[in-house]
Deep mutational scan, measured.
Amino acid sequence: LKGYACRHCFTTTSKDWHHGGRENILLCTDCRIHFKKYGELP
Rank of each mutant, 00 (worst) to 15 (best):
L1R: 10
L1K: 13
L1I: 15
L1T: 15
K2C: 09
K2Q: 09
K2F: 10
K2V: 13
K2T: 03
K2I: 05
K2W: 02
G3Y: 06
G3S: 09
G3C: 06
G3A: 12
G3P: 07
G3F: 05
G3H: 11
Y4R: 08
Y4P: 05
Y4F: 12
Y4Q: 05
Y4G: 06
Y4L: 09
Y4C: 09
A5Q: 14
A5L: 13
A5R: 14
A5M: 12
A5Y: 09
A5H: 14
A5D: 13
C6W: 00
C6F: 00
C6D: 00
R7C: 11
R7V: 10
R7D: 08
H8W: 12
H8C: 05
H8T: 02
H8D: 01
H8V: 05
C9M: 01
C9Q: 02
C9W: 01
C9E: 04
C9V: 02
C9N: 05
C9P: 01
C9Y: 02
F10L: 11
F10H: 15
F10Y: 10
F10M: 10
F10K: 14
F10G: 13
F10V: 03
F10N: 05
F10I: 03
F10C: 12
T11K: 07
T11E: 02
T11P: 01
T11C: 06
T11R: 05
T11Y: 01
T12R: 08
T12Y: 01
T12S: 06
T12F: 04
T12P: 04
T12N: 05
T12V: 03
T13E: 14
T13V: 09
T13D: 13
T13N: 12
T13C: 08
T13W: 04
T13K: 14
T13Q: 12
S14Y: 02
S14V: 02
S14I: 02
S14F: 01
S14A: 06
S14L: 01
S14G: 04
S14R: 02
S14P: 03
S14Q: 02
K15A: 09
K15D: 10
K15F: 07
K15C: 04
K15Y: 06
K15R: 11
K15M: 11
K15G: 07
K15P: 10
D16S: 05
D16P: 01
D16C: 01
D16F: 02
D16R: 02
D16G: 03
W17I: 14
W17N: 05
W17S: 07
W17R: 05
W17M: 07
W17V: 08
H18S: 13
H18M: 15
H18L: 12
H18E: 13
H18T: 13
H18P: 03
H18C: 12
H18D: 15
H19A: 12
H19Y: 05
H19G: 11
H19C: 12
H19T: 15
G20S: 06
G20P: 03
G20Y: 02
G20T: 04
G20V: 09
G20F: 05
G21T: 10
G21Q: 06
G21V: 06
G21W: 01
G21I: 01
G21K: 03
G21C: 07
G21S: 11
R22L: 10
R22P: 13
R22C: 11
R22G: 12
R22Y: 15
R22E: 13
R22V: 12
R22T: 14
E23D: 14
E23M: 07
E23F: 01
E23S: 07
E23G: 09
E23C: 08
E23P: 06
E23R: 05
E23T: 10
N24S: 13
N24Q: 13
N24I: 04
N24K: 08
I25N: 04
I25S: 07
I25F: 06
I25W: 11
L26R: 06
L26G: 04
L26D: 05
L26P: 06
L27V: 04
L27S: 01
L27I: 07
L27G: 01
L27C: 06
L27T: 04
C28W: 00
C28P: 00
C28G: 00
T29Y: 14
T29R: 09
T29W: 12
T29V: 08
T29H: 02
T29K: 08
T29I: 10
D30M: 08
D30Y: 11
D30V: 08
D30P: 11
D30S: 10
D30C: 05
D30I: 02
C31E: 00
C31A: 00
C31L: 00
C31K: 01
C31P: 00
C31D: 01
R32M: 13
R32H: 12
R32W: 15
I33E: 15
I33M: 13
I33V: 15
I33W: 11
I33Q: 15
I33L: 15
I33R: 14
H34L: 04
H34R: 05
H34Y: 10
H34C: 15
H34K: 05
H34W: 13
H34P: 00
H34F: 06
F35S: 07
F35E: 14
F35C: 07
F35N: 05
F35V: 11
F35K: 10
K36M: 10
K36F: 15
K36S: 14
K36P: 03
K36G: 15
K36C: 09
K36V: 12
K37D: 13
K37M: 10
K37V: 08
K37P: 04
K37A: 12
K37Q: 13
G39S: 07
G39A: 09
G39V: 02
G39L: 05
G39P: 02
E40T: 10
L41M: 09
L41E: 04
L41W: 04
L41G: 05
L41P: 05
L41Q: 03
L41Y: 06
P42Q: 03
P42G: 01
P42M: 04
P42L: 01
